[in-house]
């Protein structure tokens, strides 16, 4: 029985990746761009969910990892002429490094203290991107379009300005991160993470060091967030300090809560819903962030399990 369930789970996730692969051929160009953006940002939410949904740690500082990925990728392209692959790799590495450093310091704290501390470190990072504006160009940011040599695949030139290239890059990173998160959460490590979330002392007395598992979760979470920031930079060619601001720490929290904390597909769903809603709203009013606030409030008051959490509780018990 457990085995057939495992098959259904993997099949479902592969089907969703295939669906996204197919969608680019049927949706109109506007939605193709939207979907590409959603996939890139869903990666961010997937990373956030690894920490919140499985290890049970709520962070308000993930913008630091997202922006680390962005800046590492953008700055190396801008100043050193890195290619896309190397710049992406560096983006992930940089955020992994940030997550390791932050984890070693902040994981001594738990609960609300952890939340506040991550927020403060992230805020310091944000201020640093402003302070070193000779390098980062601060608020204004910088553009890397035209600096990136195109990719080559099968003898064809793939320019980053081509919407199809953006879409499929996002899809590849998204698929990898989704499968990674699924695999991790279903692995023995994932089981221990849930145990740490549910009852830390018990986990300790079962022979696991909770701190090292939390650190691992934070590093994976931060690296995935960095991958998102990095791929976003490659796709949209812009880096600016607003991506390091508190709002960008709140976004993945919102997407994850909306989609369903601790579900592997929730982050995608939450990101998609919110991105479309905010897109529609920002066409109508400059106060579109009102929706962000209202959604957070409504979710936490009435639907703390989010959409996928609700579906799991009511209909499809085996959803991971």
């Amino acid at each position: 029985m457990r085995r057939t369930r495992a098959r259904a789970v993997w099949a479902l996730h592969l089907a969703i990746i295939l669906l996204l692969l197919g969608l680019q051929f049927v949706v109109p160009p506007f939605h193709q761009v939207m979907l590409a953006r959603i996939m890139a940002l869903a990666v961010y939410a997937i990373g956030y969910n690894v920490l919140l949904g499985y290890a049970g740690l709520m962070s308000l500082g993930h913008a630091m990892f997202f922006a680390s990925g962005m800046y590492a990728t953008g700055l190396t392209i801008l100043y050193f002429g890195f290619g896309a692959g190397a710049a992406f790799g560096l983006g992930v590495l940089a955020s992994a490094g940030m997550a390791t450093a932050l984890g070693l310091v902040t994981l001594r704290a738990s609960g609300v203290s952890f939340l506040i501390v991550t927020m403060m470190f992230s805020q310091a990072f944000y201020l640093a991107t402003l302070y070193f504006n000779e390098i980062t160009m601060g608020d204004q940011g910088f553009i890397i379009s035209g600096l990136l040599p195109p990719l080559w695949a099968g003898g064809r030139e793939l320019a980053f300005s081509d919407p199809a290239v953006k879409y499929n890059l996002a899809l590849v990173v998204f698929a990898l991160c989704l499968l990674l998160s699924l695999w991790l959460t279903r692995s023995p490590i994932g089981r221990v993470l849930v145990a740490v979330r549910e009852n830390e002392e018990r986990t300790r007395l079962l022979g696991y060091n909770p701190l090292s598992y939390k650190l691992l979760a934070l590093i994976v979470s931060g690296s995935i967030a960095g991958a998102s920031g990095s791929i976003y930079t490659l796709m949209f060619s812009y880096v600016g300090s607003s991506f390091a601001s508190i709002l960008y720490s709140i976004y993945p929290l919102l997407w994850t809560l909306l989609g369903g904390t601790g579900t592997t597909l929730g982050p995608l769903l939450g990101t998609a819903l919110m991105t479309y809603v905010v897109d529609i709203a920002s066409g109508l009013t400059s106060s579109y962030l009102l929706l962000v606030g209202a959604t957070l409030l409504i979710l936490i008051m009435w639907f703390p399990a989010g959409v996928m959490g609700g579906i799991r509780a009511r209909w499809v018990r085996w959803l991971p």
Binding site: P188, R191, V192, V194, A195, E198, N199, E201, R202, T203, L205, L206, G207, Y208
Partner: peptide, 25 residues
């Protein structure tokens, strides 16, 4: 190995998961 006086188990997980956590160690 120690078992708690006041039972300490993972109440939100299945019995299988509880024991699996120990066994996989």
């Amino acid at each position: 190995v120690y078992t708690f006086q006041v039972t300490s188990i993972f109440k939100n997980l299945t019995v299988y998961e509880n024991v699996a956590l120990a066994a996989q160690r």
